[in-house]
């Protein structure tokens, strides 16, 4: 019976400590306990890594731990739905991205939340640029030839993507819409298998985030035509921007941002935003984000208002592109 007694003892001790921590939450002394950050994607993915790097610094500023909870499923909408329904006390936040808080609106007609109506924007963290990639023996040599080739051979080319709702799917649809081509889209289950098919030469081209593509490009197993950002990226100095290469209309970035459930008090949002901005100014955080090929937003783009505008513009940008796809 000793085990029961020790269990009871442990229960009481744990309860006592928990009660002491659980003081009523108010905006003045926020935060008084651990904050849960929902990441709607698997641990180790670009959104997860960016989120971990930034929140580790934010936790120091806020004086409380930020616990990352990966809630995976349905292109990130499962985790986003959970965050939308969470208590708006500032203790449950979410790192959403281009897919969950913009492209999901046209992609999922039965979406259980709306990025604008159910969330309070907090802060834009970092974006991962998108590249136009092709198998190494794909005939076109540069972006101009690529555009001509794809238009001329629209019936023959295959474009890979990492599954409906993924960044690579949405950005490829955008590219196809701009080029006014409809290649056959070959779906894969995630970036890894899609990259494998591209390296093996089973598909012709795809659009993907910079992180996993850099080593393959450097090793010559695939080639990159252009990067869809206004400026070249330090990790791929030889890859021209889409503007330089003659396709300025194609601008896409997988942005990641913190959101809170609707109705979270403005004071809490301001506290969190200040912590995030401080993290983005930290030299160590910047270094690690840049190592991943990420783009860190300028000071003017880091306010909650700027994020609200971004979400609005992005929904407007993706809706016409992705609507006919479903």
């Amino acid at each position: 019976m000793t085990s029961i007694r020790s269990l009871a003892g442990a229960c009481l001790a744990a309860l006592a400590s928990l009660c002491a921590v659980a003081a009523p939450a108010s905006a003045q002394n926020y935060p008084t306990r651990n904050i849960t950050m929902i990441v709607p994607f698997a641990a180790g993915g670009p959104t997860d890594v960016i989120s971990r790097i930034v929140t580790a610094h934010m936790a120091q500023t806020l004086g409380q731990s930020i616990i990352i909870e990966n809630v995976v499923g349905a292109g990130g909408t499962t985790g986003s739905t959970r965050a939308a329904r969470a208590a708006n006390d500032g203790y449950t936040l979410i790192t959403g991205h281009m897919g969950t808080h913009a492209a999901s609106v046209p992609l999922y007609p039965k979406l259980a939340y709306h990025p604008e109506k159910d969330f309070e924007p907090v802060a834009l963290l970092a974006g991962t640029p998108i590249l136009i990639l092709a198998r190494k023996d794909f005939p076109p040599k540069d972006l101009k030839e690529f555009i001509a080739y794809v238009k001329a051979n629209a019936e023959k080319v295959n474009a890979a993507h990492a599954g409906i709702g993924s960044v690579s799917h949405a950005s490829c649809e955008l590219l196809n819409a701009i080029l006014q081509v409809k290649p056959v889209g070959v779906p894969f289950n995630g970036t890894g298998p899609a990259m494998n098919a591209l390296v093996a030469g089973q598909v012709d081209y795809m659009c993907d985030q910079i992180v996993n593509a850099v080593p393959q490009i450097n090793a010559g197993t695939i080639k990159a035509y252009a990067i869809a950002t206004p400026e070249r990226n330090p990790s791929l100095p030889d890859v021209p921007t889409t503007t330089e290469a003659g396709l300025p209309a194609f601008q896409a970035q997988a942005w990641n941002a913190i959101f809170a459930p609707k109705g979270t008090s403005p004071a809490i949002i301001a506290t969190l935003n200040a912590a995030a901005v401080k993290a983005l100014d930290d030299p160590n955080v910047r270094k690690r984000l840049l190592e991943l090929g990420s783009v860190i937003p300028a000071a003017a783009d880091r306010t909650p208002e700027a994020l609200a505008t971004l979400v609005k513009n992005e929904i407007a940008k993706w809706t016409p592109v992705l609507k006919p796809a479903t």
């Binding site: 180790g44 890894g192 996993n212 850099v214 080593p215 393959q216 450097n218 690690r288 991943l292």
Partner: peptide, 19 residues
Amino acid sequence: MALMVGAMTIHGIVPGPQV
């Protein structure tokens, strides 16, 4: 393995053909 790639990425190592 995708998670292991994540672990490498967190440490700033992105695996590729030249790993």
